[in-house]
Structure formats: C-alpha cells, structure tokens
Amino acid sequence: MFGGSPERPGPYVSPSASDLLPNARDVGAPNGGPLRHFEPIALPNKPGTLQAPKIELPGLPAYAPQTGPNQNLLRRREALSLKAVLSEGGPEIPNGLIWRLYSAVPSIDGSSSLVASSESPTPNFEVPPGTYILHVGFGRAGVVERIDFTGVKTQQTIVLKAGGLKLNAVVGDEGKPPASRLTFDVYAGDDGEDAERKLVASDVAPEKVLRLNAGSYLVVSHYGSANAVVRADIRVEAGKLTEATLTQRAALLTMKLVREHGGEAIADTAWTITTASGDLVRQSVGAFPTMVLAAGDYVIVAKNNNKVFQRPFTVEAGHDTDVEVLTSDLATPDDPEAGSGD
C-alpha cells in the first residue's frame, strides 16, 4: 500500500518481471533495463502469403505524335497559277502544253511522285506549301524547274526558250520531190567531235513544224530509201520559226527489162544496183521497180530466167526517167548459157 487508507485503497504498482524472476534471461524475457536504441523489426514471411505481381510497363517515347488533325489540312489551299512563254517577254503560249508537277521528296523506291498534271495553257494547282519539281512539255521542247510554293496565292511564268523548225527539200535546181518519198531526221547538236548525237525526231514529214528547244541541230534529209541523203546543221532561235530547205542531188528512176526499146517489161526480174566501183546500193524484185538514187555513175544488173543482164547508167540530179535494160545486154556474152531471155 502507498498513500492510501484502509477504507480506500491506494494506487497499485505491479512488480517487475525481474523482481519475480531473478533469472529472467534464462527464459527469454527481455531485459528490464532502459531501451537505449531502436532495433529494426523483421516482419515474418509466412508460407502462402500473396505477393504483389511485378508490373513491367513499356518504355514511353520521348516524343508522342499529336493525335489531332494536321494544321495544313485545316488551312484553305491557295492556288499555284502557271503560264508559259517561248522567250523572255514573249506572248503566252495558247495551247499544246503539258504540265507535270512532282514532289521534290522522292518515294521509297527513289522515283519522283506525280502530284498533279494538266494540259491547260494556264493551270491552277491547289497544293499544300512545299517544294516541287515542275516539267513543262511543248512538243519536243521542254524545261524542268524547281518551284518553292509558300502557300500564298502565286502566279509564275515559265520561259521555255524554245522555237519551231519547218523543213523541206528541192531536187536539182528547183524541182520538188514527192512528199511521200521525203523524210527528215533531226539530231541534237554535237557536244564534241566524239560525242554521239541524240536522235530528237525521226521520219519527219516536209512542212511539219517541230517544237524544239533553242539550239543547234543536225538535220538529215532522206529522199527515197537508197542513198539520196543530205545533211545540214541548223540553229533554232527561241520564240522564232526557222524554215530550212535542203537541196537533194538525186533522181527518181523506174527500171524495166525489155526485149526491145519501148517493149513490154518482163516480170519476175531481180534487180541489183551497184556503184561504178562495185559497192552495193539497192536490191529489188519486180517488173517496174522504182527507186531514188543520188547523182552519179551506177551499174544496173537484171536477172531473169537464170540469165544476167546489165548496163551502166548515169543519174543526173532532178532528171527522173525510165531506165531500160535490154535482153541483149548480157552480163557475159561469151557464156554458153547466155541467150535472148525468151
């Protein structure tokens, strides 16, 4: 008892374990001394206890693309308006143009992507801002330019630096050959003595206007399909039509094998034309073969019924004529097989 009376009990103080058990350490009781520091408490890991699953989250990129619409798609597209002229300050080309607009960024396979095309003389391309490659074709003339379109309405003039070329030919002094037998080939200007000329146009008919880039060209005139060929270097000026007439030194011949002058032509005759030196020029089969030969000396050989007949002949420029080979014109008169051809 402490501080109490018999009628009312005082406060009770429980004896310590060390007082009750002198050897408390022997039974695992904690020391009754003052607690000097805190020891970590190890939590029990009982069998069957649920463990929280380990969550592996994918790495997030440093930049996430926006999910909203592209601002360029929301903007109103302005027009890229184009027109073309042959030369600086020249009149606008009214027709015959082909416009092709390509993206300046190549596709995966390296080719250029066609964005738009038009055959209008003044096309309006409604495209987003960017860099484009423009090709303008005008006949066999053309130009390639880079277009940087800012998105602001733009009108641009393309200068083609091109002109026209019209070709024709005469035979002899003033004769005009049949248009059906006259053609022209046009080659690009020579870039050097050993450079191979590039064919620009072939089998061009007379009086046809070729649209070409300004520059020098080699024109080859063919009269017929044998050896009547004439060449000339011609220059095309931008914004101008160049007309050129070449002179052919040749003639149109019609050949026939006859038994007498003015007689009927013998059918199934094979013909061979050689130069005086023996170079082969042309071969043909028929009763009335026609061919154009350049002016010069030739040997005409006709073969019929296993017999060969021949005669020399001189072609004069501009003098179209019939050439008769007589059956008496044997190639080898001493040949025992030679005869009249009957």
Rank of each mutant, 00 (worst) to 15 (best):
N306S: 13
I55L: 15
G33R: 10
R8I: 15
V323I: 09
V27M: 14
G263V: 03
D297F: 05
S107P: 00
I300K: 00
D297E: 11
A104P: 00
V143A: 12
F288G: 03
A302S: 04
V315S: 02
N45F: 12
I266E: 03
A276W: 01
R140W: 07
P40Q: 13
E78T: 04
R140T: 10
V115E: 03
L20M: 10
G89W: 04
D203A: 13
G48A: 11
L167F: 12
P121M: 07
T327N: 04
A244N: 09
E337L: 11
S113E: 15
V323G: 03
L199M: 12
N124W: 06
A205V: 12
P22V: 12
A226M: 05
F138K: 01
I234G: 02
L20A: 08
P312G: 14
G239W: 05
A295F: 06
G4E: 12
A116E: 10
A24G: 08
F313R: 07
G339V: 05
L160H: 04
V315I: 05
I158C: 01
V85E: 04
T183E: 10
T131W: 13
T274A: 10
G262T: 03
D19T: 15
P312N: 15
G28C: 08
T49V: 15
A276D: 08
R249D: 14
A287F: 00
S340V: 07
E316K: 11
S81G: 08
K198D: 07
Q66Y: 11
L210M: 07
A331C: 03
M291E: 07
P333D: 06
S118V: 07
D109G: 07
K166W: 05
G90I: 04
G110C: 04
Q155C: 06
S340P: 06
P333L: 10
Q66D: 14
L210C: 03
G89E: 02
A267R: 10
V281Q: 00
I93P: 00
A228R: 00
G130M: 06
L167N: 01
L86N: 02
N23M: 07
L35G: 10
N72Y: 08
G28A: 09
S107E: 13
G89V: 03
G90Y: 04
L21F: 13
R282I: 02
N168V: 05
